[in-house]
Design a protein around this nucleic acid. Sequence first.
DNA 1: ACCTGAACACCGTTCAAGT
DNA 2: ACCTGAACACCGTTCAAGT
Lengths: 228, 228
Amino acid sequence: MSRDRVIQTAIAFIDEHGLPGLTMRRLGNELGVEAMALYRYVPGKEELLDGVVEALIESMRQDEDVLDTPSDGWQDFLIRLAHGVRRVALQHPKAFPLVASRPPEAPWLRPPLRSLAWVEVFLSGLLAEGFTEDAAVAAYRAYTSVLLGHLLLEVSNHGADVGPLDALGEDSGDDPEEAADASTVRDYPVVHRLRAQLSQDHAATEFEESLEELLGRMTLLRNEHSQS
Amino acid sequence: MSRDRVIQTAIAFIDEHGLPGLTMRRLGNELGVEAMALYRYVPGKEELLDGVVEALIESMRQDEDVLDTPSDGWQDFLIRLAHGVRRVALQHPKAFPLVASRPPEAPWLRPPLRSLAWVEVFLSGLLAEGFTEDAAVAAYRAYTSVLLGHLLLEVSNHGADVGPLDALGEDSGDDPEEAADASTVRDYPVVHRLRAQLSQDHAATEFEESLEELLGRMTLLRNEHSQS
DNA sequence: ACCTGAACACCGTTCAAGT
DNA sequence: ACCTGAACACCGTTCAAGT
């Protein structure tokens, strides 16, 4: 038993049962122990969740496709990092919203790149590639904003169920074909007509396009001299 | 007493005490009634929160600067709408994350524009302005993604405190000057050096810039013939 | 018609006590 | 050193009972 085992088990539990299902008592049970025993390894549930977030983003360190430092240009570097974050999000769709919703340690540690270690990697990578300090910081802000918006939406279309409360064994219930019941949709003719298009999943290509756009914006940033 | 009064009181309560502080029992108390009385107006806490989300975004209807239909071009239309959403987010920073985290009724009702009514307004506005159906749908996706990413980050730097759990009367504690304690920051030289820049708040101008970029992308979308 | 009291099955967390 | 039992102060929710 160790802090790390507690946190890894919590991640597995969230993946399987959803965030609202995670309980100190149930997590203890999963580990073959009473809930009170967990307090030896973690100060409380809040800190457990912070540990989960940290473990998730730190898990990118094991990802060989994510670089510590640019080796083939800053664009390649940022693309690899973005895909690394996306992989984490898609592997843990029910846990990822925690990365967005836990209060950050500092206002400038922005989800989803919210550890000092990764911010350091990001900024020093760009500086090494010729970004000014102001441009690197501006790039960090734009980058996190795009990743957060896209991944949160993508993940919510997978296993979301992330609200502050929700049943543990919730059976998905309604036929997906008629979610947001049809009688209401019919009152909105354009939505009704575009139903098919709206339901299509283009998350992957949208991600690539947003990323490309973002890199384009950064190229401009990089070549500006002053950044207000 | 009415469903609406319950929901409005819930919003005010969240604004003041934070999301984790909201409890059926405390909300009843706020209304001078026992918790059990609320169940006459709302089926449960889940539905209460859904009602809060709906009330928040529907409150934009009262906003005179937000148009129902484009009157001065689609760009003006979308800019007004974006500022309307941002105003709601900034007026209710502690409640806004609910808009992002409640499971959407359908996968194509994307936060923060997650009501049929507003999606209808959005899409029919763009169609009336010469967008093809595919372009309008693609625009909806890009637009929601940008708004969500930016506003969630902006709001989390205001009154966030939004995690699934948190103390009610949490005293903000640490000197903001030294959040994420300094001894650790010193281990990351670039972050340490760029501390000042990282702490600056450029949310408003970043918002305008992202929006401008987004509209630029949409102009291209609008002029394409086929959209895969 | 609207609200309440009492109860149920849960929570997170503390702490003295066991081994 | 590590875990447990019992307890405390809360939750959301149900339901018979009050007025």
